[in-house]
Write a protein that binds this DNA or RNA. Structure first.
Lengths: 235, 235
DNA sequence: TGTACATCAGTGAACGCGCGTTCACTGATGTAC
DNA sequence: TGTACATCAGTGAACGCGCGTTCACTGATGTAC
C-alpha cells in the first residue's frame, strides 16, 4: 500500500517510507509532501505533547485526540504527520537515542589503572544522565522493542551498538594483554556489562528509593564494570 | 464493589480480593465462591489458552473472546474466574515465578575457588532454563512490571528477591574476607549482577542468533558473575 | 436404588461505548506579474 | 505595490467497527433421604 508511489523509482520527491524521515533526512507528511516551516512547528508541538503524555500514561493509553487537543489541533492534523501514536514515539526515540555515540566515546581510550576506573564512573554517570533526560521515551522504546517491534529494536540497537562495540574492544584488548581468560567471549561480555548500564539507567531511581545512595550505585557499578572489562582486581 | 461481602468481617468464606487466590490459597471465582473440581479444570484450560496466545501475540492483542473460544467456552465463563486478561496473566506469572527459590539455593553455599565458578555456571544455566520454560509469561511479567503495574512488580520482586539477597550476602562475605573493597555496596552490586542474569535469561536467544554460542554465553556470564561477587581474579 | 431438590457451572445474544479514522471543506501563506 | 491564483495547513463532524461486559437463562452435577 504505502510503497506504491516509490515503485517507479525515478520520482525525485522525498517519500515517507513509514518512518518520519525520508532517506535524505527531509521531513515529509503522510502523503510524501515536504513540510514547510509552519508544518514543522505543528509536528514538533505534537511530538512534545506526545512525550508529555508518556510521562504519566502507558503507551496504549495515549489517544490521538488527546495529543491533538493538547496543542489545539484537530485529530486529523495528527494524521498528516504520523501514521499512529507509535510512529510519533518512534520519532522521539530516534531523537533521544541519537545522543548515545557521545557517551560511547568514553570507551575509545584504553581503560587502564585509576584513569580507567574514572572512565567507568563517567560512563555509568553518563548513562544515568541520559536516562534521566529521556526516561519516559527510553522506557517505552525498550518496552516496545522487547515486545518484538522491529522498528524500535532497530533504534535501540543503533543506540547501544557503539557502547557494546566499545566494551567488546576493551575486553579483547584485556585478553590480548593476558588479564582476561580466552574462555570469555568479548561480545557476550559486552552484552552482560551493557545490561548493567541499561539496568542502572532504567532502575536507579527504584534502587535509590530502596535505600541505596545514588553515589554508591555509580561507584559500585563502575567498579564491577571496570573489573569485568579490564580483568584488573582493584585491591 | 467487590469487598461488600467481606465487610461484615465474620464470614468464613474464602474471598477473592482481586487476586486469583484467597489468602489461604483456596481458589475462588469473581463472586467469592470456592471452585469445584469442574470449575478448576475450566479455569486451568483458560489459563493454558491464555499462555498459548501469549507466545504469538502482544498482551494488548489478547481478547477474552478468543481465549474463551479456544477452550469452547463463552466469554462469560472467562469472567467468572478472572477480572480481565491481565489477571489471568498475573496468575500465570505467579506460578512461573514460584520456581525461583530453588534456583536461589545455588547461592546458599559460599562461592569459593573452582567449585564457586561451578555454582556460577549452574546459576546462569538455571536462569536460562527457567526463562526458556516460561519465556512468554516472564517476558510479559517484566514488561507490565516495567510499565509500573504494582501487582506484576510484586510478583517479579518476590521472584528475584531470594536471588538478590543471596548475591548480596555473597558479596558481603567477600568484603569481610577482604577480596572486595568496602567502597562497593552489596545491594547495588546484587542489582547489577542480577541484571546480568535477567538479561541472559531474556535475551540469550537473540545473542545466540547474533553468532555467540550458548555455551560461551553461559561461560562468560558465569565468569563475570563470579569475579564480581567473589573478587577473585580467575587468572 | 431412586427421586427431588440445591447448587454449581456455563451459555449466547446483545447492548453500548469509546476510539480511530476519514472526507469534503475552509482558512492561511506564498508567489508571479 | 497590488491583485490573482496556487499550494500549504488544518478543520470538525461523523461514521463505523470491534470489543468488553452483562444478564436472564439453561444444563450439569452433587446430595439427602
Amino acid at each position: 500500500m504505502r510503497e506504491t508511489e516509490a515503485r517507479d523509482g525515478v520520482s525525485e520527491k522525498p517519500v515517507n517510507l513509514g518512518s518520519a524521515t525520508s532517506p535524505d533526512g527531509v521531513l515529509v507528511d503522510q502523503g510524501g509532501r515536504v513540510l514547510g516551516p509552519r508544518a514543522l512547528g505543528t509536528r514538533q508541538k505534537l511530538l512534545d505533547a506526545t512525550r508529555d503524555r508518556l510521562d504519566s500514561h502507558r503507551l496504549r493509553e495515549i489517544r490521538v485526540i488527546d495529543v491533538a487537543r493538547a496543542v489545539d489541533a484537530s485529530p486529523a492534523a495528527f494524521y498528516q504527520y504520523f501514521k499512529d501514536i507509535e510512529e510519533a514515539v518512534l520519532a522521539l526515540a530516534e531523537a533521544a537515542s541519537s545522543e548515545m555515540p557521545v557517551v560511547a566515546e568514553l570507551l575509545e581510550q584504553p581503560w587502564l589503572g585509576n584513569a580507567g576506573l574514572g572512565c567507568a564512573r563517567k560512563l555509568v554517570s553518563a548513562f544515568i544522565d541520559h536516562w534521566d533526560h529521556h526516561h519516559a521515551v527510553l522506557r517505552v522504546r525498550n518496552l516496545v522493542s522487547d515486545e518484538g517491534d522491529a522498528r524500535f529494536r532497530a533504534v535501540r540497537g543503533r543506540a547501544m551498538s557503539p557502547v557494546l562495540l566499545g566494551l567488546a574492544r576493551q575486553i579483547e584488548a584485556s585478553q590480548a594483554a593476558g588479564r582476561i581468560s580466552q574462555d570469555e567471549d568479548p561480545r557476550a561480555a559486552a552484552a552482560a556489562t551493557g545490561a548493567i548500564l541499561e539496568r542502572m539507567g532504567a532502575y536507579h531511581r527504584d534502587l535509590a528509593q530502596g535505600g541505596v545512595a545514588q553515589e554508591q550505585l555509580i561507584e559500585t557499578s563502575a567498579r564491577i564494570l571496570f573489573r569485568s572489562v579490564t580483568g584488573e582486581s582493584l585491591l
